[in-house]
């Protein structure tokens, strides 16, 4: 464990909590892509299958459970409790265009052709594109509430910090996980445009982020 990974995990947790509390307190999921949240729940489900078979640390186990519970709780808020406020019209990204290539690639490019390893690889590839429906929805509606942009900021920051974690682990431990690193770079690249808007619009105190 290093400071980059720990702060990355904290950012990830903060992002998930920001989103959950935003929906819970505003009793609305307007502007939130349910599809992205479904994809994140799928990412955690396929990645944390070793939750009961491989004990790594208390921290690892606790965080996995917390991420799974919050992911499914957020999905249930969007699709059940506050489904009247779910804007399915704007959440129109075709996720099959993500799932099929990601599933195909996880069968082609993996470390070992075993169910657990392929599902882990699937979760890594899927996570790098899971935010696209949400970013697409923001471009479609042309705006995002500031709290949603803070959620996206921490979510983008977490994987950026993981990139620093992998640089550190390569330097310190000679460790290099090609699949995770390449996917992490792709994932972070998708946030670059958002980061630019976030720093130039939202942090200037303009509150809502409106796209040009």
């Amino acid at each position: 464990m290093n400071i980059f990974r720990l702060s990355g995990d904290v950012c990830h947790l903060v992002a998930i909590i920001i989103l959950f509390l935003k929906i819970w307190r505003s009793k609305s999921c307007a502007g939130i892509s349910g599809k992205s949240q479904l994809l994140f729940a799928l990412v955690f489900t396929t990645r944390y299958l070793d939750l009961f078979t491989a004990f790594i640390s208390i921290y690892n186990t606790v965080m996995k459970v917390v991420f799974l519970v919050l992911a499914y709780a957020t999905v249930s808020l969007i699709y059940f409790r506050f489904r009247k406020s779910y804007d399915s019209e704007s959440d129109s990204f075709r996720v099959e265009f993500l799932l099929v290539p990601v599933a195909g690639l996880s069968f082609l490019e993996n470390y070992s052709f075993t169910p657990l390893e392929i599902l882990w690889t699937f979760s890594i590839y899927l996570e790098s594109v899971a935010i696209l429906p949400q970013l697409f929805m923001i471009t479609k509606t042309g705006e995002a509430e500031s709290i949603t942009t803070h959620y996206l900021f921490f979510l983008g920051l977490y994987r950026t910090l993981y990139l620093a974690n992998w640089v550190w682990r390569y330097h310190e431990e000679g460790f290099f996980d090609q699949i995770a690193v390449v996917s992490g770079v792709v994932q972070t690249i998708f946030y670059c445009d958002f980061f630019y808007l976030y720093f130039t619009r939202v942090l200037r105190g303009s509150g809502k982020m409106t796209l040009p």
């Binding site: 790594i56 690892n60 996995k64 290099f176």
Partner: peptide, 10 residues
């Protein structure tokens, strides 16, 4: 470098 899986990561 040595390739290890990131299974100890979240």
């Amino acid at each position: 470098g040595l390739q290890k899986s990131t299974k100890d990561e979240l």
